[in-house]
Simulated assay, not measured.
Amino acid sequence: MGGRGRRARVADVHAVARGMPFVTVWEREDGTDRPVYQIGGKSFVFFRTARPDAVDPETGEKYDDVIMIWTESEDEKLALVSDEATPFFSTPHFDGHPSVLVRASRIGELSKQELTEIIQDAWLSRASQRRATNWLKEHRL
């Protein structure tokens, strides 16, 4: 990964996720800016609160900027987290769950194009077959 256009920004996560069709945004009641982006009631991008499963190995402090992004499959997840060129990671809490984690502070290690493709794939993995097929017909060759 890397090298395909400008660096991604956290604002791109919001813009791309919100820009997919039929997306609803669930805002937290506690007033924090940690939206959950959903398609058909299924989350595909999720800004997490600090949790004990994702901590700084040096300080033990919980990461407060983790974004969860669904993947198409466990194989896709493993490909992303095992590629040292990406900022993606997982924790034992997500073993067997088709999603990757990324810290917002490291999102710039991806290009905007790479981030866009990952979020689009997340949406496709959670959308109904009809919606996914229609979107693919409109956007892919």
Score class of each variant (00 low, 15 high):
I119C: 11
F89P: 01
G108C: 01
L141D: 14
W123Y: 13
P35T: 03
A104Q: 14
S128P: 02
V25S: 03
T91M: 03
W123F: 12
F47K: 03
I118V: 14
G3R: 12
A85H: 12
G5Y: 03
D83M: 08
R130W: 07
Q120S: 04
E29A: 13
G40S: 02
S125M: 07
P87F: 10
I119W: 10
V102K: 01
L115I: 09
A132I: 07
V16R: 06
E84P: 02
G60H: 03
R6D: 13
I39K: 00
A127M: 07
R9V: 04
S128C: 05
D33Q: 11
I69A: 05
G3N: 10
P92F: 04
T86K: 09
V55H: 07
T71P: 01
A127S: 12
F22H: 13
R18K: 12
V81K: 09
E76M: 09
R131G: 00
Q113A: 15
E114I: 04
L124V: 05
S99G: 02
E138V: 04
P92Y: 09
Q129T: 13
F47C: 09
S82W: 04
K112R: 15
S128R: 12
E84D: 14
V16G: 04
H93P: 00
P21V: 03
R18P: 00
W135R: 00
A8L: 09
F47E: 08
V10G: 01
R4C: 05
R130D: 14
E74T: 11
S125A: 15
A50N: 02
E61N: 06
G96D: 01
V36Y: 02
G19C: 07
I107N: 04
I39D: 01
S73D: 06
P92L: 06
R51G: 13
E84S: 14
E29N: 07
V16L: 03
I39Q: 03
T24D: 14
A79N: 01
L141P: 15
A132Y: 10
V23G: 03
I67T: 08
P98G: 02
R9H: 11
D75W: 00
R7M: 12
T71F: 01
V102W: 01
W70T: 11
H93T: 05
S82Q: 14
R34D: 01
W123L: 10
T24L: 02
P98W: 05
D33S: 11
F22T: 07
T49M: 04
T86P: 08
P21M: 05
R28N: 00
Y63C: 05
T116F: 11
K77F: 00
L141G: 13
K42N: 12
R126Q: 15
V81A: 11
A132S: 13
R6E: 15
I107E: 03
I39A: 11
L115H: 11
Q38I: 00
A79M: 10
